[in-house]
C-alpha cells in the first residue's frame, strides 16, 4: 500500500450518489460512487469552508434558459453545499452556472478489486476520477 492513499471502504458499501467522508492527512475527503465511476472532493466548500459533502446526495441543477423555463441539467453530478447552496460539478469541481471561479478540490480514486482508495496527495490538476476497474 502506498503512503499517499487512504482506504475509503469497499465498493458495496457505497450508496449510489451518496458521499462517504474519510479523514486523510490532506483533510476530510468525500468519496462518492456515480453511474460512471467514483469521484472524490475535499469536504470543504471554497466559499466558507462548510462540509460540502455532508447533508445532501449528489443532485441535479438547472441551466440557462429563457426566463421562466427550467431546464434540468447535470443530473446527479451536482455537489450542493449544505450551507449557502453553492453548487459544483463533482467531476470537474467547477461551479454550476459559473457563479464563482472557485472550485472544489478533487482527488483521484483507485478501485482495486472491491477496495476503494482515495489518493489524497494528488489534488487539483490530477484526473478527477478513475473508472471502476473490472472485477
Amino acid at each position: 500500500m502506498d503512503n499517499d492513499r487512504v482506504r475509503a471502504g469497499v465498493v458495496d458499501e457505497f450508496v449510489l450518489n451518496r458521499f462517504r467522508v474519510v479523514d486523510t492527512p490532506a483533510g476530510a475527503i468525500g468519496v462518492v460512487r456515480t453511474t460512471d465511476g467514483f469521484y472524490a472532493v475535499l469536504n470543504r466548500c471554497p466559499h466558507m469552508g462548510a462540509p460540502v459533502c455532508v447533508g445532501t446526495d449528489l443532485t441535479t441543477s438547472t441551466v440557462a434558459s429563457r426566463p421562466f423555463e427550467y431546464r434540468l441539467a447535470h443530473e446527479d453530478r451536482v455537489v450542493r453545499c449544505p450551507w449557502h447552496r453553492w453548487e459544483f460539478r463533482v467531476d470537474t469541481g467547477e461551479s454550476i452556472g459559473n457563479t464563482t471561479k472557485a472550485r472544489l478540490l478533487r482527488f483521484p480514486v483507485i478501485v482495486e478489486g472491491a477496495e476503494v482508495f482515495v489518493q489524497y496527495r494528488a489534488a487539483r490538476g490530477a484526473a478527477a476520477r478513475v473508472k471502476e476497474t473490472p472485477q
Binding site: 471502504g9 462517504r20 467522508v21 475535499l42 460540502v52
Partner: peptide
C-alpha cells in the same frame, strides 16, 4: 495510512477544530 481511518456520514465533518 491503511484501512478506514474514519468514515463519518455524520455532522460537521471537515470543519476545523
Amino acid at each position: 495510512m491503511n484501512g478506514v481511518s474514519k468514515v463519518s456520514p455524520g455532522v460537521g465533518t471537515g470543519l476545523s477544530k
